[in-house]
Design a protein around this nucleic acid. Structure first.
Lengths: 101, 101
DNA sequence: TAGCTATTTAGCTAATACGCTAAACAACAA
DNA sequence: TTGTTGTTTAGCGTATTAGCTAAATAGCTA
């Protein structure tokens, strides 16, 4: 939980997650999207990875990072549900089961 | 966006939001739930307030904080939708409109 | 082997964040 | 006015974070 929200607190790291939504990208490709050095980006990747939000696959010299969406979903939606618990239907994200949207 | 995710990065601040889900509480009531000093809690309230996540109403000497859920919803769900965009139906949070859950 | 590309690690600086105590401020009661 | 309660502000110490450059590591190609 903590590591995940910590990881989400930096705008570059949130944007990395967005870039990965369509599939894997190499560390270099990702780094090229941001105006900071590659070592700095490597630190951001490390934080995202240790939070479990991305996975790194080593493909001979280059590393392909992919989004681990389920971990993000579970942490963020779990928190939102805890904050919303007991709220009225008007603020629910989804309709109750068995009802039409 | 940034201020909101920054505010969410500290576990005490997330828990404050959860405590406020059922209604307003005074700064002192909130502070009593945590093992840190009141000045420290005051700093956490200030951060939550400047992010727009809570509102403080001054009722003669004591301050009542309330959750501003819509700001939290908009930021967090907005981000989740950006990260999910283009994902398959199996990972969607809600069923498409007009379908039964 | 050497050389090239991709990425991380090491080491540093500067800025930010979090905690504390003591003091200040505001509202109310005696 | 004095005291009491509730809360924030001021000031400080320490830890963490984010950025940099330079160097190290890993894998490929020739």
């Amino acid at each position: 939980m903590n590591a995940i929200f910590d990881a989400l607190s930096h705008p570059i790291r949130r944007e990395v997650l967005e870039l990965l939504k369509r599939g894997g990208m190499t560390a270099g490709e990702l780094a090229d999207h941001f105006p900071v050095s590659k070592p700095t980006m490597s630190g951001h990747f490390a934080k995202l990875k240790s939070a479990g939000l991305i996975l790194g696959e080593n493909r001979g010299g280059t590393i392909i990072y992919t989004l681990n969406l389920s971990v993000l979903e579970e942490a963020v939606m779990g928190f939102m549900n805890r904050v919303r618990a007991g709220q009225s239907a008007s603020t629910r994200t989804c309709p109750p089961k068995g009802e039409t949207a």
